[in-house]
Write a protein that binds this DNA or RNA. Structure first.
Lengths: 265, 265
DNA sequence: AAATGTGAACTTTTTCACAGCA
DNA sequence: TGCTGTGAAAAAGTTCACATTT
């Protein structure tokens, strides 16, 4: 819509598909693990297995970044780590504020994966005056009154909302007004933001509900000679509805693709 | 190599697209809010706005469930709440165990949205003997040794893993061996599970990295006459790479679709 | 008049399969 | 020979636009 350019990517299109972007952190994690084990190169097959995707997808994903592999050999681990990090913007410093230091906010502040990879917790903010000054994960909690000042002083462009649902929209608006342009929302609400502001949502109960949906399906299918030999008759099996629901096999995927099926037994 | 059933869904496919399933909890939440305000009916337009999607998508989604609306009128809120709940399997009781009661596990145990909507925290499990018996969110923590017994006794089919990454795969295998067939994984690892077991992953650092990617793009695009008038020159703007990257406008989406653009300013 | 439900067009994502290169 | 990189095909998801129903 907005841009008038609707012709085919004429020359070198820098447009990485959203689905690919969402998988880059996955590859990066797998690569980092390999790097720590001093593995010098890796094939698309191996890396794909480690990341839990299929190798064709991985190769296609990488092809959007450029030609970073060597035919007949594979990918240089260190080099790929660098390329993906740079593509994701992790070679720069991202100061982040966490608003709402309840149970979840504290967990986030303590979460190691946050601090690594270029993200730095610039401030913890809570509306409760009793929390002010109290250190969480070694960082003193500051009062909401300070929000705008902190964001401007630290140059924060990414905010994390871990407040109750009722406070989220208001916090969001203050963050945005102060200059934040990317928000990670843990509150179970739909946030309204102006154009140009990115919101990503993490919702625990939604994930559980999706699992429940598939779980129910499995219960309904257990008569049709499916998998899952152990303990299958535990549910009340309320799945009475449409006629014999002969859909897919029971195997299912995670949020963004495949889950490698490796029998541990 | 588990199931041999690969035939096509023969007759009336009860197959609800995965993307639709992922949005049902969103609709349900919006509907529940309307229900609490005693709103009797709602149009696709209104409901879509509340859920943060577009109305055509919502109607299409609902069409997979059946014809639950009334032309010229809209949808009966209570009726839809019931239908979606049932479709998601939330009309039955889902006992859930949470393994790993650190900061995050405790946050999850305390999270209200968990307990509502059919999910019941059947047990909190931690490997630390010092935690045993200590109540979290009113539920005494039990030791990992009890894991199998709890799952069998309570008929648990959904497990939540909130352990450190190093313990996750092992916990996962014990859960699965004991009969769990759906897992919500908060540990930053790819879990290997047998066929027929569902895994969904929630990964805080991945979400942040995706935000960083888009944030970097914005910084690189700010020369091209984009949006974001306020405080735009804060980043180091390392985005020097491909030639003039004239892609989309700066507006972006969340994990599963649209973000309503409502200027608060 | 208003709003659903849905074929059809379109877009995005995944998968296939193999040419091409080290 | 082995593995990448990628066109082309297939599948999944989204949006359009309007016939249909209340």
């Amino acid at each position: 819509m907005a841009t008038g350019r609707t012709h085919r990517p004429a020359t070198r299109s820098r447009g990485i598909p959203e689905a690919t972007v969402a998988r880059l952190p996955l590859y990066l994690r797998a690569l980092t693990a390999l790097s720590e084990r001093s593995v010098p190169t890796v094939s698309s097959e191996e890396l794909a297995a480690a990341a839990g995707v299929n190798s064709a997808k991985l190769r296609k994903d990488f092809s959007y970044l450029g030609s970073y592999g060597t035919r007949g050999v594979g990918y240089d681990v260190e080099y790929l780590v660098y390329q993906i990090s740079r593509e994701l913007g992790l070679t720069q410093d991202w100061p982040v504020v966490i608003v709402g230091i309840g149970n979840l906010g504290a967990a986030l502040a303590n979460y190691g994966g946050f601090a690594s990879r270029g993200f730095r917790v610039a401030a913890l903010i809570d509306a409760d005056p009793a929390m002010a000054g109290k250190p969480v994960a070694g960082i003193p909690v500051q009062h909401t009154d300070e929000l705008e000042k902190i964001i401007q002083d630290e140059g924060v462009s990414i905010g994390v909302i871990a407040t109750p649902a009722g406070a989220a929209q208001q916090v969001c608006e203050r963050l945005v007004a102060a200059g934040v342009t990317s928000i990670l929302n843990f509150a179970p609400t739909v946030l309204s933001v102006p154009d140009g502001v990115d919101v990503r949502k993490v919702d625990l109960s939604i994930e559980l509900q999706i699992l429940a949906f598939h779980e129910q399906r499995k219960a309904g299918e257990l008569a049709a000679g499916a998998v899952v030999p152990a303990a299958a008759s535990r549910q009340e099996t309320a799945a009475r509805r449409g006629a014999a629901a002969g859909r897919e096999p029971a195997a299912d995927q995670g949020p963004d693709g495949d889950v490698p099926a490796v029998m541990p037994t």
